[in-house]
Design a protein around this nucleic acid. Structure first.
Lengths: 379, 379
DNA sequence: CCAAGGCTTCAAAGCGCTTTGGAACCTTGA
DNA sequence: TCAAGGTTCCAAAGCGCTTTGAAGCCTTGG
């Protein structure tokens, strides 16, 4: 909220005088600002709409000479086909929908926007548009249905799947193509997905810490209703069990992955009598908060406390590679969420272009990178 | 890039058997999964398409009884009007375009996504869709033209205006509604905008530091090709000049507002012999980096170095209010970029709904909040 | 009883594109 | 020279909605 608002109104009506007009510009063949439609373009060329349409859409049954003429004229008259007309005629919207609930725990966040950036690249390259619908949690399902039924989108990307996610059976029953970023426990329906091997990444990272002699470690996880977070926890616990150990449940946290979360947890766990000597975090964001808390408490990363983060390689952070001596600050499990966005979009394009195919699935292994934030357990 | 990729293909064809079919479900009036169109709905009701359309769109010339009947049937048959057909008939797309260049310095970043979240709320509430087009810098202008000409969008939000921004005259000449988030130096064309009073915010913050006795201070600014950044610099310099001082140009930085930027600048300026005692930053992101660098150098915020940040109140950071004793950590100029997104979207909706009106402008004052990151200059 | 006038409803004409089913034209080979 | 076969183009039928102009049906008052 602004503490004060000043409103200023300028003069001048921009929009006037630019709208209507008609033949003149066409007749004299000038670069016109008017909207030209297919009919007019065809008339101008002395061709039928069919031919012009085919010429522009690269059909083989129109001669190269005609095509060139058509393209040149289209260019000169600044012709663009109406998206809605094309969509109505073909039944395709050439648009992908992303539905994002604006709730506490799945707002438009940096992870999400980096994913979008990746997906958006692919869409643009493939001639698709990206539609984003911000919704309040409760009407989420009906939004998917609406977007599909109104024909506004040809497919969806499903974000942040929960363990049992109602969106999957819904979309499957709607018969609309979709790709899930992550996985679910839905044994009943088959669907396309792309995921990082979260379980293995966290198992391995935990193992690494155990090797360094750490006994008490905390897990600063994402919301465990989300499938990725519950898998991470499993990996964490598995590594413990493999050595006959048990992860301390009081050191496992599950919240939205924001900066203050890491700070709060830090203040809390490091105040304990037998504080943990290592912390695994689901995102760099809370890790920053944790480091902030440690700074206030005089604790050093890599010495007093070892830290491993899951690094989505958020483009605006990139702490990973900028440390001193070329060694990254955070020891990390790395997997670019932007690359994931690209890949998911590609999979969806494939699915749309070759309908009726089998669902595809891809599992990426995260890279493990040792930085300066880990070291042997203090004695 | 994943270090290894496993590809798994499931069986089962989801899409089969859900597509074609026709009358049967209609005849027996069951909840059908088929796509019902206006014609079928009208037939089912024994009414004309006109009446049904009007009933659903709330026209006054249809009786309440008929309307209820129509709505009930539409509901029962799961009727949704085709977006492209409606768009073709009305000439309106009910969609707003956001064009975002995927370049180094204006990628989809957290500031942007928080803005989007705000705008998206308003669109959803107003029955509009949000279209996002990720583009490479060079074709940016032609994308605006295309999106407008193909009728895919009814208006644009212009992000991150530069000092002389070619997009403004272009959009004005296209006659498409748009609202700029920020301002420009285009005296020639009038346009709608909403901005924060960046100059005043930075003038005041600088003044505050001068009052505290700081003499040498750094400005960690955004890219000064962006209008907001250049205004911030002006405010910074004005405050100096008002006291007969001159800001040290070697302490003014201008880059993309990411975390490592603040870190790098910190390492650099605090290594100098007569290091600055205060730093103003354009975003919390580099501020986090700066604090990280300070931590490594053993410098304390609020004691050794005073820090003031421009806080966009990014929803995933919110460091502002979570300090000890209820006092925020950063002394800050605050203005919610999400609220800005909401407001810009509202202004655009207004402009679209009342075409031909005069351009509107709104200037918000940032709130100034004193936290723990500022203190008297060390002697 | 009839005309005026308000309520309801309708048929049909677009909106601008794609695409089907031909037709016209031009090249060949017999 | 003519028929066959390619090539190039076309008229017209949608796609599913909105909207115009008009008509049918009631209720009224004279």
């Amino acid at each position: 909220m602004p503490s004060s608002v000043a409103v200023v109104n300028g003069g001048l009506d921009l929009l006037a005088g630019l709208v209507d007009s008609s033949q003149s510009a066409l007749r004299n063949g000038s670069l016109s600002r008017e909207k030209v439609n297919l009919k007019q373009l065809a008339q101008e060329l002395g061709l039928s709409q069919t031919t012009v349409s085919r010429a522009l859409n690269g059909f083989p049954e129109v001669s190269e000479r005609t095509r060139e003429r058509v393209v040149a004229a289209a260019d000169r008259l600044n012709y663009r086909p109406s998206a809605s007309a094309a969509s109505l005629a073909t039944g395709k919207a050439r648009t992908i929908g992303h539905v994002v609930p604006l709730a506490e725990h799945m707002m438009i966040n940096p992870h999400f926007s980096d994913f979008l950036a990746g997906a958006g690249e692919v869409y643009a390259r493939s001639g698709y548009e990206m539609l984003i619908r911000v919704v309040s949690q409760d009407d989420e399902l009906s939004i998917y249905r609406d977007l599909a039924r109104t024909g506004r989108v040809d497919g969806f990307v499903v974000h942040g799947p929960m363990n049992e996610d109602p969106r999957i059976p819904l979309l499957a029953s709607l018969g609309v193509p979709f790709v899930v970023h992550g996985r679910c426990h839905h044994s009943s329906t088959e669907f396309s997905w792309m995921d990082v091997n979260n379980r293995e990444a966290f198992r391995r990272a935990t193992d690494f810490l155990l090797d360094l002699g750490h006994q008490r470690m905390a897990l600063v996880n994402g919301l465990e209703t989300m499938n990725f977070a519950s898998r991470r926890r499993v990996g964490f616990e598995e590594a413990h069990r493999a050595r006959g150990l048990e992860a301390d449940p009081s050191l496992i946290f599950s919240r939205d992955m924001v900066e203050p979360y890491g700070y709060d947890v830090g203040r809390q766990i490091f105040a304990k009598p037998n504080r943990p000597t290592a912390v695994l975090l689901s995102s760099v964001l809370p890790a920053i908060g944790l480091v902030r808390a440690m700074g206030e408490l005089g604790l050093k990363a890599g010495e007093d406390v070892s830290i491993i983060v899951f690094d989505d390689q958020l483009s605006f952070l990139q702490q990973s590679g900028d440390g001193m001596r070329g060694v990254p600050f955070f020891t990390a499990m790395r997997s670019s969420i932007r690359a994931a966005g690209r890949r998911v979009a590609e999979m969806l394009m494939d699915q749309i272009n070759a309908p009726g195919g089998e669902p595809a699935a891809e599992l990426w292994e995260a890279e493990f990178v040792v930085g300066r934030s880990t070291g042997p357990a203090p004695n």
